[in-house]
Amino acid sequence: MSVDKDTVKKIARLARIAVPEDQTETLAGELNGILNWIAELEQVDTEGVPPLASVTGHPLPLRADQVTDGEQPESVLANAPEQASSFFVVPKVVE
């Protein structure tokens, strides 16, 4: 599997990271270097091995579906780049 300039643009778009056109080539080279190195894993026989997603060894705990926090809009908005009347402000989405 190899990454070309178009794939870099596609991944960058998925990750919402703007990548200037003149950097796509370099980035493709770097990503391929890493991906080729990672490809070593293909040598490992993992037939019948279940994936390990969590090492805790205990099931996820459940709690009552109750509100335990809230009513503090000032705190929530304290670090907002832009806010207005207790809302986060973003560029216009709907025309």
Partner: peptide, 15 residues
């Protein structure tokens, strides 16, 4: 499957 799932299986073997 080729990357993340494969890596999680190898992780199992390492554990």
């Amino acid at each position: 499957d080729a990357y993340y799932l494969k890596a999680q299986k190898v992780r199992q073997l390492i554990a």
